[in-house]
C-alpha cells in the first residue's frame, strides 16, 4: 500500500521525469536509427554529452546557492585552451594556471557574497575576462591535447561504452557528496535558508567559496574532457555550454532558488539535451526549426514539471 502511494506521489514523478524524458528520446533515436543501438553507436551519441554533463554539474553547484553562472561556457573554453597549450608543453605552468582558476572562482564567490552583488552581473563580466584570456592564449584555433587526456577519453572498456560509465559515475559521486553527507546538507542549506545556516554558526562565506571552487573544478574537468575529445582547442569552443548547462540543471529537476537540485537529474538532463539534438537531426528537421524544436522539448518537460508541482502543492 505504502509503495503504491509512493509511486503516485509528486515526489516520485519529480524524480522520474528526467529519466523518463531521456528514455523517451532514446527510444525515438533507436527507432529512427537502429544503428545507434550498438556499442559504437552509443559511444558516438553520448561522448560529447560527457563534457556537457560536467559543465551542467558545475552550473548546478552555483544554482544550489541561488546564483547563476553565465561564464561557464567561456570558462570551459579557456580551460580547453590551457589544456591544449600549457598543460601539454609546460605541465607545471598548466596545473598552476588551472589552480589559479579555482582560486579566482572561490574569490568570485566571496566577492558576490560579501558585496551582495547579483551573480549574473559578476559572472557575465567574468565571461568576457575568460574569453579574453582564451584569445590571448590561443589567438588562432590550434594547440593539441596532452596524450594522457586523449588516452583517457578514448578508452574503450568492454561491454559498456565509456560515456555511459562516466555519466553514471559522475551522477553517483556528486549525488553521494551533496545529498548523502552532512557537508552536502550545509551547502544546499545556503540556497535553502541562508539565515538558518548563519544562526547555526556556520560561515556562509566559506560555504559559498567552496561551492564556487567546486564549480571551477567541474568546469575544468569539462574543459579537459572536451579538449580530449576534440583533440585541439579554439577560444570559442564551448560558448554554447552556458545555456546548455542551465537548461540541463532545470531539465533535471533543479530549481533556480531554494537549493533544490538533483545531481543525477542534472546528468540525465544534459544527456537528454544532447540526445534531443541528435534526435531532431535524425528526423531531418530543417535547422531553422531545430532551435525552436529544442525549445519546445524544454517547454514540454517544464510544463509536465509544473503539473507535478501543482500536485505537490495540493497535498
Amino acid at each position: 500500500m505504502n509503495g503504491l502511494r509512493f509511486f503516485a506521489s509528486a515526489r516520485f514523478w519529480r524524480g522520474a521525469l528526467p529519466a523518463l524524458s531521456l528514455t523517451f528520446v532514446l527510444v525515438g533515436v533507436f527507432w529512427l536509427q537502429p544503428r545507434a543501438m550498438s556499442y559504437f553507436g552509443l559511444n558516438l551519441l553520448f561522448n560529447l554529452a560527457v563534457p556537457i554533463a560536467l559543465a551542467t554539474i558545475a552550473q548546478m553547484f552555483v544554482i544550489a546557492v541561488n546564483d547563476l553562472d553565465l561564464s561557464i561556457g567561456s570558462f570551459v573554453s579557456l580551460v580547453a585552451c590551457i589544456g591544449a597549450t600549457w598543460l601539454r608543453d609546460t605541465p607545471l605552468l598548466g596545473i598552476a594556471a588551472l589552480l589559479g582558476c579555482v582560486a579566482v572562482y572561490a574569490a568570485l564567490g566571496a566577492l558576490i557574497y560579501i558585496r551582495q552583488l547579483p551573480s549574473i552581473v559578476v559572472t557575465l563580466g567574468m565571461s568576457f575576462v575568460w574569453s579574453g584570456c582564451a584569445v590571448l592564449l590561443l589567438p588562432t584555433p590550434g594547440g593539441s591535447a596532452p596524450d594522457w587526456i586523449r588516452t583517457l577519453v578514448s578508452y574503450k572498456p568492454s561491454y559498456v561504452p565509456m560515456p555511459l560509465l562516466a555519466a553514471v559515475a559522475l551522477g553517483l559521486v556528486v549525488h553521494f557528496g551533496l545529498m548523502r553527507t552532512s557537508w552536502g546538507v550545509l551547502m544546499r542549506g545556503v540556497g535553502g535558508n541562508e539565515k538558518a545556516i548563519t544562526r547555526a554558526g556556520w560561515s556562509v562565506l566559506k560555504l559559498k567559496m567552496v561551492m564556487y571552487a567546486l564549480t571551477a573544478v567541474f568546469g575544468i574537468l569539462a574543459g579537459l574532457t572536451l579538449v580530449g575529445l576534440a583533440t585541439s582547442a579554439d577560444a570559442n569552443i564551448a560558448l554554447r555550454y552556458t545555456l546548455l548547462s542551465i537548461a540541463g540543471v532545470i531539465l533535471g529537476g533543479g530549481e533556480f532558488v531554494g537549493g533544490r537540485i538533483s545531481p543525477v537529474g542534472a546528468v540525465l538532463g544534459a544527456m537528454t539535451l544532447t540526445l534531443t539534438a541528435s534526435f531532431l537531426s535524425f528526423l531531418r528537421i530543417s535547422p531553422d526549426w531545430q532551435i525552436g524544436a529544442q525549445g519546445a522539448v524544454l517547454i514540454i518537460v517544464l510544463a509536465l514539471r509544473a503539473i507535478v508541482n501543482r500536485l505537490e502543492a495540493r497535498r
Binding site: 544503428r35 551519441l45 537531426s281
Partner: peptide, 20 residues
C-alpha cells in the same frame, strides 16, 4: 546545417552523420 554556428554542435552533427 547546424542550428547554431558552434563547433561543439557541428562535432555532434558529424557524429550523427557517422551513425547514419
Amino acid at each position: 546545417t547546424t542550428a547554431e554556428n558552434q563547433a561543439t554542435e557541428q562535432a555532434a552533427q558529424i557524429q550523427n552523420l557517422i551513425l547514419q
